[in-house]
Design a protein around this nucleic acid. Structure first.
Lengths: 339, 339
DNA sequence: TTGTATGCGTTATCAA
DNA sequence: TTGATAACGCATACAA
């Protein structure tokens, strides 16, 4: 409602001084500082984003996005969301710079962060969960760069907000779906990406949570890793089905789903297993059309990319950090009919 | 990229003239008009929303939202979405005026449209599908009011865009879910709101589409109406279950779900039917916790309200109508674990 | 018909 | 330490 101009009139100081106070630029006498602050408080001053945006065009903000996404089709939609936000914010003097990395190499990620952080107002990325990366985040934050984590979070650091899904809930949903599909009776095998990856572990925890509380007739027989790889997934599944031919239900926690499904087809031909997976990539669609996977839990990748950029923008424009430390997108059940 | 100022410099005419041409205000000589247009074309002029917004603050745009929502809890989330967009756009000189009506009275809706249309730049509402309302939309459009339909569409009129779900797809998903839950064998009863309401009919069409193509062992035994009312729903269900005690699967197309579920409990105590419903209202949650309803198809009510307002805003600010005539939100499967 | 000046809210620059 | 002023892109009232 109130503008800087009004505050300057009410307090009898110039607009410049009000600006200096409100944006903490210093060089203001303590009395005036107090005066302006109290008046701004009274009138409930909130900076106007349109005005800020217009002024910002002269020296525009840069929001950098760094994704370890190359070769991982899941991120295609995340990137679409980033681009959509970019188009929407283009008029407001914001530049969005996107950079991708292949694989999860800590040194490469930190090098990229260093480079991008140099000229960015905000930095959005999917962190590798190591102390080195956390330290880098703190360093950037200390230099005034707003850091956001996307899709994956990291603990004990000064990131402003995590944008992503609730992996534990995702696992619970997967179990709930399998419960509905099997009538509550199932011999379950789990294929995860890696037991060391936090998100995968949380999905399994969620799955087991529902299983123990709600489905006493679920028997959990085996868990193996795919390393997010189709070949390893094939081999793991072969072994699992050989050791436990009574498995009729598979919980696919991560990638490598094509290899797993091929193994199912090869070693249990004609048998109809109940399979639930995560995310929606081209292979998922193919496997669902083939009737191998029956449901997949999605985590709104588009919204993740879009919201992360918008959150950063709003924070830059309003001057205040996000109110919530987490922006959790809803998990989304997909079956063939709503792929 | 290019601004009005730059175009004026390139073309050697004043900013005022460029403005007159680009916004079709007339009083410009044909030659200058052609000149300015060709240059604007060349440089790919797109008006800057921040600048427009700032200028608009002097005489701000009004976006009116009219919802036949009173007494219908489904719309609570739609309204939340409207408010969220309002907060977001507040800085850009836009006022959002919300008004609600009780029930679906054509005269009342038209009267409200007339009143709100008088001082609105854009009008968003869920139309009753009658020629009178269509005529009113055309009248408003002729007077320069941008009209958007929300949640429900209406044919043969000059509304700019429909924001809502795909009801046919919703029905297909419901059948897909029941297919998964029943193993493809079911005796189905359908309880719709009214066979005369287009959205309800489309959901049933979608359901039958999947049923005939994919589930040959589904037997469709009976369809009755609830009139969106719990008492009528109870009575209809009682009759349906008496006439067809073999029913083990219920497709709940619309409201009145509480009455239906109570009837199921009363007349088939202990029997576990497969029930799928639409939308997420407090009753739905209660019935799902009680294990009566197993899945519900939601249509992103929040996004509907939010996107409709934003679409109107973007259109007002960019001067161009939405590119798409429909903004279809995804249908969303919910089970107990992701309510 | 055309051009100019002013203001929207904010920021940056320059002068005092 | 302060204040005045110009600029961002657009719209409009007014002057020519």
């Amino acid at each position: 409602m109130a503008t800087i101009k009004q505050i300057s009139e009410l307090s009898g100081v110039s607009r410049g001084t009000v600006d200096r106070v409100l944006n903490g630029r210093g060089h203001v006498s303590p009395e005036k500082e107090r005066l302006v602050r109290s008046i701004a408080e009274q009138v409930g001053y909130k900076p106007n984003r349109a005005g800020k945006a217009l002024a910002a065009r002269k020296k525009s903000y840069i929001i950098s996005v760094l994704l370890a996404s190359e070769g991982n089709p899941f991120f295609a939609e995340v990137i679409s969301g980033v681009h959509a936000a970019e188009r929407e914010l283009h008029d407001y003097g914001v530049k969005v710079v996107l950079r991708t990395l292949k694989g999860y190499d800590v040194d490469a990620q930190i090098a990229a962060l260093t480079e991008m952080g140099a000229d960015s107002s905000a930095l959005i990325f999917n962190p590798i969960n190591t102390p080195e990366v956390a330290g880098k985040i703190n360093e950037l934050a200390a230099r005034g760069v707003q850091v956001y984590t996307l899709n994956t979070d990291i603990e004990n650091c000064r990131r402003l907000c995590y944008v992503g899904s609730d992996y534990f809930e995702g696992g619970r949903i997967a179990c709930g779906m399998l419960g509905l599909m099997t009538g509550g009776v199932a011999n379950v095998g789990i294929l995860t990406g890696s037991v060391h990856i936090l998100g995968h572990k949380q999905r399994i925890d969620g799955f087991l949570d529902v299983m123990y509380k709600k489905y006493p007739k679920f028997r959990f027989l085996s868990i193996m890793e795919t390393q997010d790889d189709d070949m390893i997934g094939f081999e793991s599944t072969r072994k699992m089905l050989t050791d436990h031919p009574e498995i009729d239900t598979i919980f696919l926690v991560a990638a490598g789903i094509y290899g797993v499904c091929r193994a199912v087809q090869s070693f249990l031909p004609g048998r109809r297993l109940h399979i639930v997976s995560f995310d929606h990539i081209p292979q998922t669609e193919e496997l669902m059309r083939a009737g191998l996977i029956h449901a997949t839990i999605c985590q709104q990748p588009f919204a993740q990319g879009y919201e992360a950029v918008k959150l950063a923008f709003n924070s830059l424009m309003s001057g205040a950090p996000p109110k919530k430390q987490q922006f959790i997108v809803k998990n989304d059940i997909r079956i063939l009919e709503n792929l």
